[in-house]
């Protein structure tokens, strides 16, 4: 089906002739493609992408986040319900985060999480038929950077999902350039939320705006912008 790759598709179209893996004879369908009995149906408008050996998905520019297992996201705790926290991750449904899913948390030793806190966490259950579930520990029970963030300042803001993917791409120079001259902490959630903490309020705002502005910029343009930004911040 190599002829579909790179083409624009619309919801409802059926695709066929997928390239299978040589070992397992399987095809992996990513976001935007769905199997309905024997057909493969497109479920969102965009461009069909293919990755060796057998992965297919539809690429589009969207802001609405759909939970995916294994994604690291930034959520806002909206309420406490019994043993779980209900966390807003920007998806269609609130996700649950068990209070035991924190580093060194036990039945007696509850983690200190308040309503309105932001948490950096990972999805362990993300399924279209079930409530998504989050954790703040890895399989060894360590936090590894996950947990409550933003207690001591910093700013969180929302961008598009594409921008987040662009920033995280190893080819993107934005964070490297900013990091050369400014010291700041950043947490990037796959749901399009970013949390930034720099030394001062103005630096934080500057970095946040630089990131939002870089959405449609090439690496060259980003370099130019960062140079200006850093010069302006240094007071030239």
């Amino acid at each position: 089906m190599v002829d579909h790759v790179g083409k624009v598709v619309l919801p409802g179209e059926t695709l066929s002739d997928f390239k299978e893996s040589e070992k397992t004879y399987k095809v992996i369908l990513g976001p935007g493609l769905r199997q309905e009995s024997d057909d493969i149906i497109v479920s969102k408008p965009g461009i069909v992408r293919f990755k060796e050996p057998n992965v297919y998905w539809v690429d589009s520019n969207q802001k609405r986040y759909v939970p995916v297992k294994g994604d690291s996201v930034i959520g806002i705790v909206t309420n406490k319900a019994g043993d779980v926290f209900r966390v807003d991750v920007g998806g269609s449904e609130l996700a649950t985060l068990s209070y035991l899913a924190f580093e060194s948390a036990t039945k007696r030793n509850r983690p200190d999480v308040k309503v309105g806190d932001i948490v950096f966490c990972k999805f362990v259950v993300a399924n279209k038929d079930m409530e998504p579930e989050l954790v703040c520990i890895d399989s060894n029970g360590k936090s590894g950077g996950l947990g409550v963030i933003g207690r001591d300042g910093g700013y969180m803001f929302q961008t598009s999902l594409n921008l987040v993917q662009k920033i995280l791409n190893p080819d993107c120079v934005l964070l490297k350039l900013l990091g050369k001259r400014l010291s700041f902490e950043v947490a990037i959630g796959m749901n399009g939320r970013l949390w930034i903490k720099a030394r001062s309020v103005s630096e934080t705002i500057a970095i946040a705006n630089a990131i939002s502005a870089s959405e449609y910029m090439s690496n060259e343009q980003i370099k130019e912008m960062c140079k200006r930004l850093l010069d302006a911040l240094a007071g030239f």
Binding site: T78, G90, G116, D117, I118, G154, Q158, I205
Partner: peptide, 14 residues
């Protein structure tokens, strides 16, 4: 989308 404490504090200090 709810407003987090972090955003609130930041906007206030800004």
């Amino acid at each position: 989308t709810p407003l987090s404490n972090c955003e609130r504090d930041f906007i206030r200090s800004a």
